[in-house]
Simulated assay, not measured.
Amino acid sequence: MNNSRKRKTTKRKSTAVRNKFHKAWWIGGILIVVAYVWAFYYFFVSPFGFRWRALYGDANYPEGYDIRGIDISHYQGDIDWDLLQNAMIEKSPLRFIVMKATEGSSRIDPSFAYNFEQAREYGYIRGAYHFWSNKSSARSQAYFFLNNVPLEDGDLPPVLDVEHKPADKSVEDFQREILTWLHIVEDRYHVKPIIYTYYKFKMQNLNAPVFDDYPYWIAHYYVKKIEYKGEWKFWQHTDAGRLPGIKGYVDFNIYNGSFYDLKKFTIGND
């Protein structure tokens, strides 16, 4: 009788242990999935959230703007410029092309030199942007851009593409770094560089009054009206554009003004 009770008690304890183990296993698995989803969102979606809206469907085209352009990099591959020269965006001809030139203090976009030459050859107003890196100093990045980007009269002012701030740096220190780059490049070309960013990043990290002196290129996708309330020159309204001569998607942009204004905005025409 006692042995039978012992066996039953042992069996109940064994079952309880297994149940606790299974429960712990499921809880651990759920926590791992939650952690993975959070990490993916934090590191890949949140900093570039405005870019993920292309998953929702076709691009929207803001009304009331006639001056259209694109921005390109090596991600667009080899461009057929003969096909591209006849491209239209919502019945408006392609007027300007901005291309990635440099990143950080050591990376040059492999397509930059050729695209930069072709854009001028085919009669577009062209521009070049530097992609900000938190791994290099502002000074080294500024001089790397200046040493590798031969902007000329008739080109758009230099562009600083800044989309993320290091978590361990204060907003004030980050702003000083950005201003260092802007001041060095402005001293060379005697025009204020364009700041490219998305509107939430601007409001969170570049909202000091000193930055209001710079022209803005705002990325804000899939809205009929840009939510940024300040003055802006360019609006990147989609990353899901399609054009002849370019395989895959390309970013579409509008200029906030007339074609005459755009030409006056270029280097050497102020």
Rank of each mutant, 00 (worst) to 15 (best):
N2P: 02
N3Y: 13
N3L: 12
S4T: 09
S4W: 15
R7T: 07
T9V: 11
T9H: 15
T10K: 12
S14F: 15
S14E: 11
T15W: 15
V17E: 13
N19C: 07
F21N: 04
A24M: 06
A24Y: 12
W25Y: 11
L31M: 11
A35H: 08
A39T: 14
F40G: 08
Y42I: 02
Y42K: 15
F43Y: 11
V45M: 09
S46P: 00
F48K: 01
G49A: 09
W52D: 07
A54S: 12
A54H: 11
E63W: 07
E63G: 01
R68Y: 04
D71W: 14
D80T: 09
D80N: 15
D82T: 08
N86P: 00
N86S: 13
M88E: 15
K91L: 00
P93Y: 00
R95N: 13
R95L: 06
F96N: 04
V98I: 15
G104M: 05
S105F: 13
S106D: 12
P110Y: 15
S111Q: 15
F112D: 00
N115R: 03
Y124C: 05
I125E: 10
R126I: 04
G127M: 08
Y129I: 02
Y129N: 04
F131N: 04
F131C: 04
N134D: 12
S140D: 15
S140P: 02
Q141V: 07
Q141G: 03
V149S: 04
L151V: 03
D153R: 14
P157R: 02
P158T: 03
P166M: 12
A167Y: 10
R176L: 11
E177V: 01
I178E: 06
W181Q: 02
H183A: 09
V185D: 06
V185K: 06
R188L: 06
Y189P: 03
Y189Q: 01
H190R: 04
V191T: 07
K192E: 13
P193C: 10
T197Q: 02
Y199Q: 09
K200V: 06
K200A: 08
M203F: 01
N205E: 12
L206C: 08
N207Q: 09
P209I: 10
D213Q: 09
H220F: 05
Y221S: 00
Y222K: 10
K224E: 14
K224P: 00
I226M: 14
E227D: 15
Y228K: 06
E231Q: 11
K233N: 13
F234S: 04
F234K: 06
T238G: 00
D239P: 01
D239A: 08
G241T: 06
R242K: 14
L243T: 14
P244K: 02
G248L: 05
G248F: 01
Y249W: 14
F252W: 07
S258F: 02
F259A: 12
F259H: 09
Y260R: 13
D261R: 08
K263Q: 15
